[in-house]
Design a binder for these strands. Structure first.
Length: 560
RNA sequence: GCGCCCGUAGCUCAAUCGGAUAGAGCAUCGGCCUUCUAAGCCGACGGUUGCUGGUUCGAUUCCAGUCGGGCGCGCCA
């Protein structure tokens, strides 16, 4: 709808230029939805943008534009209003055509091809395999997965990636912690490792290791050596054990990945070394105080960063740069990384490292989708998250308590820039406080209508219905058509701006319009034309609800 | 001290690359089930968009300053 109007206005502006009335390049005007029905359905701001360039009053410019606006069967009325808005009122034909499109396109309604098949790598979660996933990871997973679904729906070829930091100091701590448990040492013991992980799960890992258990992860299998002194074996087993746990929780959350990328592989195949040598060859590094530094201040960082410590090991961001180099070489001209705000400092470093390689990577590559911290409330008190102390609410806890649908909806419904308060009591109270039920209920209500029709042997004739959509002339029905037609714009917008919360918000509004209409009018009336028209709109609504919920990874139940 | 994010109704949050009269839910109060599911609907109440300037046809949105909250500023990851 928007595209069509944009085209009409572009042609009008072009016409004015040919006529010599407008002596200015066409402005970057927008067609936007109006806030109030009094202002029509869409508004164009082109006239106001031209004021300076043309030197005329905005309303006069608007008049000129309207004068040459090509006629369209979709447009019933055009008005000039306010400071120079051109308000467009759509004809019934336009609305009816949109309903026809929904029913025709079905599960594809709202999808587009704006990505044009381009590849995008979306990295998310990427939690260290040192403990179960907590609410912060859950927010990451919900944002990343929804984003991936949105990109797919807008014509991108999406690759979901998970980067496992399975090398480095934290993993060494994990191995030491498990070894301590194997030896019967608990966190209260003075012999407990200083930076050890104190969670209960460490004991479970130790128990399975001692039992000689096997863990399957990816396509391989790791079998415990059961040797308390073999720290390498303990590490390998522990990492596999925790990866399996994380994978299982993510699967339960409806999240899967195309690529699991192991940090350790970057050392094995020499990528880390390659990065360091390349940066040195480009002259962006120097040695000082026994360490090798990246001159990241040359790339917008506020201080230079150590790449290779004086003990010969690399700092964490070097393999991270190597990993992103791998993404680049694998062809992701577009890449996005979903990252908690507590890690936003690393963003500058990774980009600086990529710039220092001097291989033509854009300075703002990759995209980072940042989200603020999650605080968890339970019983009116904040639950502190501490992986080391082992006290935190896990993703598994959330799913068990609130259910998959509510958890996903809660975590996606707010803008990433805002801190999120996850109220456990609210989420688990499966009542009307929970907006996800409100949306699902709208879907279930349409399904219920279908069941009624079946029971009463009423047949829906779609072809017939589409000829009588003119019967949908009440305000509540029009409001539903209006909301339904917004869906493609919402999907496009949510994907382009990387703001999946817009979709969650929208579905609440669509469901609201539907509930109002449902209460105002009976669908299954004797008048066949009217009945078919109403059922057609109800089906269109159900389709959009299902498509939207699907993009959120939330189920669309047929009954509740 | 420096960098990033946030500050909107009593509470939790929206507001379409700067648009018109700032919107929902919850809470509070008052109504609606003989009717396809009341997990619903209708109405009322509720605002100096933290504060002060600036930019312009127009600012919740952009800029500067200021106050308050969060996160980061390691040869940790």
């Amino acid at each position: 709808m928007k595209d069509l109007l944009h085209e009409l206005f572009s042609r009008a502006l072009e016409q004015l230029r040919r006529d010599g009335i407008l002596d200015a390049p066409p402005p970057a005007f927008v067609i936007e939805r109006t806030r109030s029905r009094e202002h029509g359905d869409f508004a164009c701001n082109a006239a106001m943008l031209l004021v300076k360039a043309v030197g005329k009053k905005p309303r006069d410019i608007a008049m000129a534009i309207v004068g040459v606006l090509p006629a369209s069967p979709w447009v019933s009325k055009v008005e000039i209003a306010g400071p120079g808005f051109i308000n467009v009122f759509l004809s019934d034909t336009a609305w009816h055509e949109e309903i026809r499109r929904v029913l025709h396109e079905g599960a594809h309604y709202g999808h587009s091809n704006s990505g044009d098949g381009r590849a995008i790598g979306i990295e998310f979660v990427s939690a260290n395999p040192t403990g179960p996933l907590h609410v912060g990871h859950a927010r990451n997973a919900a944002i990343g997965d929804t984003l991936a679904r949105l990109y797919s729906a807008t014509g991108w070829k999406v690759y979901r990636e998970y980067y496992y930091n399975d090398a480095g100091a934290q993993i060494a701590n994990l191995a030491l912690s498990v070894q301590a448990r194997i030896r019967g040492i608990d966190p209260e013991d003075p012999r407990w490792p200083a930076a050890g992980y104190r969670g209960e799960y460490i004991r479970d890992v130790a128990r399975d290791y001692l039992a000689g258990a096997s863990v399957e992860v990816d396509k391989g299998r790791v079998t415990s050596a059961a040797d308390p002194d073999d720290l390498d074996a303990i590490r390998e087993f522990s990492v596999a054990w925790l990866r399996r746990e994380q994978d299982a929780d993510l699967r339960a959350f409806g999240v899967g990945f195309d690529v699991y990328f192991l940090e350790s592989s970057l050392y094995v195949d020499g990528k880390v070394l390659q990065v360091v040598e390349r940066i040195a060859a480009e002259g962006h590094s120097y040695e000082a105080a026994g360490a090798l530094w990246l001159r990241s201040t040359g790339f917008g960082d506020d201080k230079d960063r150590v790449m290779r410590k004086s003990d010969g090991t690399y700092t964490y961001f070097v393999p991270d740069v190597a990993y992103h180099l791998s993404k680049w070489e694998r062809g992701y001209k577009h890449a996005a990384t979903v990252l908690g705000a507590d890690h936003h400092g690393s963003l500058t470093r990774v980009r600086a490292g990529l710039q220092a390689l001097a291989i033509g990577i854009p300075c703002n590559w990759p995209d980072y989708v940042l989200y603020q911290m999650v605080t968890v409330m339970r019983g009116g008190e904040e639950v502190k998250i501490s992986k080391r102390a082992g006290s935190y609410v896990t993703l598994r806890d959330l799913i068990d308590m609130a259910g998959l649908d509510a958890t996903r909806y809660f975590l996606i419904a707010r803008k990433g820039d805002s801190q999120l308060v996850f109220d456990i009591d609210l989420a688990r109270s499966q009542t009307n406080d929970n907006p996800v039920y409100y949306i699902q209920y709208a879907h279930a209500r349409v399904c219920s209508v279908t069941r009624q029709m079946h029971e009463r042997a009423i047949v829906f004739e779609q072809t017939h219905a589409l000829k009588h959509l003119g019967r949908l002339d009440s305000e509540p029905a029009r409001a539903v058509m209006f909301e339904v037609s917004r869906f493609p714009e919402i999907v496009e917008n949510a994907a382009a701006n990387q703001e999946p919360h817009l979709l969650a918000q929208y579905l609440r509004e669509l469901a609201g319009a539907f509930h109002v209409w449902y209460n105002a009018e009976q669908f299954l009336v004797d008048d066949e034309d009217l009945r078919n028209a109403r059922v057609a709109l109800a089906y269109a609504t159900r389709q959009v609800l299902a498509n939207g919920l699907g993009l959120l990874g939330v189920s669309a139940p047929e009954s509740m």
